[in-house]
Design a protein around this nucleic acid. Sequence first.
DNA 1: TGTACATCAGTGAACGCGCGTTCACTGATGTAC
DNA 2: TGTACATCAGTGAACGCGCGTTCACTGATGTAC
Lengths: 229, 229
Amino acid sequence: MKSRRERMREQTSEEIKAIALRLLAEGGPDAVSLRGIARDMGMTAGAIYGYYATRDDLITTLISDVYTALVDQVEAARDAISVEDPAGRIVAWGEAVRDWAIAHPAEFRLIYGDPVPGYQPPPGGPAVAAEMRACTGLVGLTAAAWPHAESHQTIGDTTWSEFDADLVAHVRAVFPELPPAALGLALRMWGRMHGLVALEVYGHLIPQSRDPAKLFHTEMLDLVRSLGL
Amino acid sequence: MKSRRERMREQTSEEIKAIALRLLAEGGPDAVSLRGIARDMGMTAGAIYGYYATRDDLITTLISDVYTALVDQVEAARDAISVEDPAGRIVAWGEAVRDWAIAHPAEFRLIYGDPVPGYQPPPGGPAVAAEMRACTGLVGLTAAAWPHAESHQTIGDTTWSEFDADLVAHVRAVFPELPPAALGLALRMWGRMHGLVALEVYGHLIPQSRDPAKLFHTEMLDLVRSLGL
DNA sequence: TGTACATCAGTGAACGCGCGTTCACTGATGTAC
DNA sequence: TGTACATCAGTGAACGCGCGTTCACTGATGTAC
């Protein structure tokens, strides 16, 4: 049973994060400062140290939260499509990534770009757990598509040693039948989903394309087609 | 005939940029400040205003220079391969992008990420010219591959209206035979080359892959294969 | 129910820092006679 | 060649700013009797 004080603490802690995200969305990475957050909350900057040990601590929490939200949404989009339709699930995953990125460009930059001036991420990265989930999600999609995709890939010379040992152990435990080339394919799919979205979010696609959504959709269709689905 | 003073001016102007780039490479975006540059040059911060009207002016010049250097290198890599080998030229282009990015990660971030805290790019973007060159280069590669690629693409419902009018005018002038779907393909190729490189430069691939170079190479081979080359 | 004490969230002032930018100036370099 | 003047690159001090972080404190909220 949480005391009133505990509940208040949690609420304030959440409010700090919420306002930090709002400042991020409104003013970009530079706008996220302890003083700015405190100002917006009607507090003193020093008060935040009652909730986060340091500015970078807060940023790390933010990145982790945001990455988790992204993965939640992307997994949900995938699960809205039947497992009988691996191609649909891949496309849904990709489209969900883009939809989220377009809806939350500042958060996308926080995760995949330079987060905030002077920020030093903790060893292992600020959002290992969420990134791992994203990665295994992609491997799952690849595994489902592999029966069709295999014949379209050059699998001969790919070895497990090209990948991180922990990742390999995990993948082989969950999908014992999968060859190393499939893991490579999963990472390449990640790159393919990331590329156009990153270009668009950072403003490099807008001068060229009037319909980035369609461009991305075409790319996703081409992706599943190249998988033989 | 340039006077001695003029030559000195140019030299100092170049030195400012060179030191800014060194600081960027060594200390990240936050390290690029007029005071930091002046300190490194043994000058006063105010002296820089004799060369650049404002900090953002300098950054804009920097971005433009760096983007130009990238495009120079990428075009050279392409031109090292015979026009008889469109697939080889595409792969060379992609590999050159990655090689440059890995050799100059800070510069890559300057171009494709958030450049520097507080930087406000000029209208039209800081490196329109270089980006246009990159874009037309990709369209050229696509045009060369189109005879083989066409049958592998879904071209039916792509229209010119999905793209920027100026870009379309330029493309149609240079490659009158090319359909709109080819322009879409060029942009998607851009995304495909960008994705894995961006992930790697920003540290999202390293925890997973021990050999990102090979992963990227596989992706490029898959790209030309999917073009029917 | 009322009082005495402990907890602890938040204050406000201060610290030292580095930043972009301005400006009156100095002193070396160039030019004209 | 030598002198008088003009140009102009760079100085150094100052401006106001916002930042992260610390710390002695206040005053409200909770707890124990």
